Amino acid sequence: NQESVVAAQLIPINTALTLVMMTTRVVSPTGIPAEDIPRLISMQVNQVVPMGTTLMPDMVKGYA
């Protein structure tokens, strides 16, 4: 089963992602794949992401 990127903390809107903000977990439905974490660093979220929420492609500016 593929791991997806999950918020390790509350991420406010327009925050640039850092490694410490993200963790990985096997979730359903699947979100952004864990191997894309290096690509996500410094990208901004376009909404508030509560802790434990799976990051979906449409939540990250410039990802999709």
Rank of each mutant, 00 (worst) to 15 (best):
N1L: 12
N1A: 15
N1V: 13
N1D: 04
N1P: 07
N1H: 15
N1F: 15
Q2E: 12
Q2A: 09
Q2W: 15
Q2H: 15
Q2I: 14
Q2D: 13
Q2L: 08
E3L: 15
S4Q: 02
S4F: 03
S4V: 03
S4W: 04
S4C: 05
S4D: 01
V5R: 01
V5S: 02
V6P: 01
V6D: 00
V6F: 02
V6S: 03
V6Y: 02
V6A: 05
A7Y: 01
A7R: 02
A7M: 03
A8P: 01
A8W: 04
A8S: 13
A8C: 04
Q9H: 07
Q9M: 09
Q9V: 07
Q9L: 07
Q9W: 05
L10Y: 12
L10W: 14
L10E: 07
L10G: 10
L10M: 12
L10P: 08
L10N: 12
L10S: 11
I11C: 02
I11N: 00
I11V: 06
I11D: 00
P12K: 06
P12G: 10
P12W: 04
P12R: 06
P12E: 07
I13V: 15
I13D: 12
I13N: 15
I13K: 08
I13M: 13
I13Q: 13
I13L: 15
N14Y: 07
N14I: 02
N14L: 06
N14A: 15
N14H: 13
N14V: 02
N14E: 07
T15C: 03
T15K: 06
T15H: 07
T15Q: 08
T15E: 06
A16Y: 11
A16K: 09
A16M: 15
A16V: 09
A16T: 05
A16W: 13
L17W: 01
L17T: 00
L17A: 00
L17I: 11
T18F: 04
T18Q: 09
T18L: 06
T18S: 06
T18W: 02
L19G: 08
L19K: 12
L19C: 04
V20P: 12
V20R: 13
V20F: 12
V20D: 14
V20Y: 13
V20C: 04
V20A: 08
V20L: 08
M21I: 03
M21N: 06
M21T: 05
M21L: 11
M21A: 07
M21Q: 06
M22A: 00
M22K: 00
M22D: 01
M22I: 14
T23P: 01
T23C: 03
T23Y: 11
T23H: 11
T23A: 11
T23N: 09
T24S: 12
T24W: 05
T24Q: 15
R25F: 06
R25M: 09
R25G: 15
R25V: 06
R25Y: 12
R25T: 06
V26L: 14
V26N: 10
V26Y: 09
V26C: 04
V26W: 10
V26S: 06
V27Q: 05
V27R: 15
V27N: 06
V27Y: 02
V27T: 11
S28F: 08
S28A: 14
S28N: 11
S28W: 10
S28G: 10
S28P: 03
P29Y: 09
P29L: 04
P29N: 13
P29Q: 12
T30W: 13
T30A: 14
G31D: 00
G31L: 01
G31T: 02
G31W: 02
G31N: 01
I32R: 01
I32L: 14
I32C: 03
I32D: 01
I32H: 01
P33G: 07
P33K: 05
P33V: 09
P33Q: 12
P33H: 12
A34I: 08
A34F: 06
E35M: 10
E35D: 12
E35C: 03
E35L: 09
E35F: 14
D36P: 00
D36N: 11
D36K: 07
I37Q: 08
I37F: 07
I37A: 09
I37T: 05
P38A: 05
P38W: 09
P38R: 15
P38E: 12
P38I: 09
R39Q: 09
R39E: 05
R39G: 08
R39M: 07
L40N: 00
L40C: 03
L40Y: 02
L40M: 06
I41W: 03
I41M: 14
I41D: 03
I41Y: 05
I41C: 03
S42Y: 06
S42C: 04
S42K: 14
S42D: 09
S42N: 13
S42A: 10
M43D: 04
M43Y: 10
M43H: 09
M43G: 08
Q44I: 06
Q44L: 12
Q44M: 12
Q44N: 11
V45A: 05
V45G: 00
V45I: 05
V45D: 00
V45Q: 00
N46H: 12
N46D: 06
N46S: 07
N46K: 13
Q47N: 08
Q47S: 11
V48S: 12
V48N: 15
V49F: 02
V49D: 00
V49M: 04
V49S: 01
V49Y: 01
V49R: 02
P50R: 07
P50V: 09
M51N: 09
M51D: 08
M51H: 10
M51F: 08
M51K: 12
M51L: 12
G52F: 11
G52E: 06
G52P: 00
G52Y: 11
G52D: 10
G52H: 10
G52R: 06
T53I: 10
T53S: 06
T53E: 13
T53P: 01
T53Q: 11
T54K: 04
T54A: 06
T54M: 04
T54Y: 03
T54N: 02
L55V: 09
L55K: 00
L55W: 01
L55C: 02
M56T: 11
M56E: 10
M56I: 08
M56R: 10
P57T: 13
P57W: 13
P57C: 04
P57R: 08
D58I: 09
D58Y: 11
D58S: 15
D58G: 10
M59F: 11
M59Y: 06
M59H: 06
M59D: 03
M59T: 03
V60G: 02
V60N: 02
V60Y: 00
V60H: 01
K61L: 14
K61W: 11
K61G: 07
K61H: 11
K61E: 12
K61S: 08
K61M: 13
G62M: 11
G62L: 10
G62H: 05
G62R: 15
G62A: 08
G62Y: 06
G62D: 11
G62V: 04
Y63G: 03
Y63W: 14
Y63A: 04
A64P: 12
A64W: 05
A64T: 14
